[in-house]
Amino acid sequence: MIRFEHVTKTYAKADKPALSDVSIDVAKGEFVFLVGQSGSGKSTFLRLVLREEKATSGTIHVAGKDLGTLSNWKVPELRKQVGTVFQDFRLLPNKTVFENVAFALHVLGHTKKEIAREVPEIVELVGLAEKLDRRPGELSGGEQQRVAIARAYVSRPAILIADEPTGNLDPGTSIGIMKLLDRINREGTTVVMATHDSSIVDQMRKRVIELESGHVIRDQVRGVYGYTG
């Protein structure tokens, strides 16, 4: 689903590469934690997957597309297949829960009828059926993140990218979010989650890829956050 082959990314004004000779293969339906300190290259990895940046060298395949040769006008096609969730939720404050989720479908050209059917369904999945007409300001952080996940998932993307989705949430709320991501993963969506949250990584026991200074220093099936011994 996501395949990096000897990918190096050096930003224009940097002297050191942000990612250096990284090879990673994430299969369809996998759940992968991406861990590492700030500046280790996690964000660069995610930006490359979304093609917000292009690799300096190496090849990247995402959802069957070679991102090195993908033309700019086809980038939207890629992003339709990759849902994204962020630490800061990125909801539209003037729109209700329904409208925020519907926004994604509107943008993708769905009809009103489809939207009226799909949005409540997905909002129910994330557990906010009672709050369809609330605005983000009236919701807790955890609830806002659920809305963001609903928005990312409503178009049923093949891949869900989550960049520190629990970074702003307390531990109890975080567990709820993780259960939701796990559920989405079990429906067949590949999930890549960058995180600092060691307790979550340790509890979930999923594949862990650790980056340090742009290198992959660990790739473990059923891993934990750090080496225990």
Partner: peptide
């Protein structure tokens, strides 16, 4: 930003 993320064309 959201439009970009969900795959809207330029």
């Amino acid at each position: 930003t959201v439009m970009k993320l969900v795959g809207a064309s330029s």
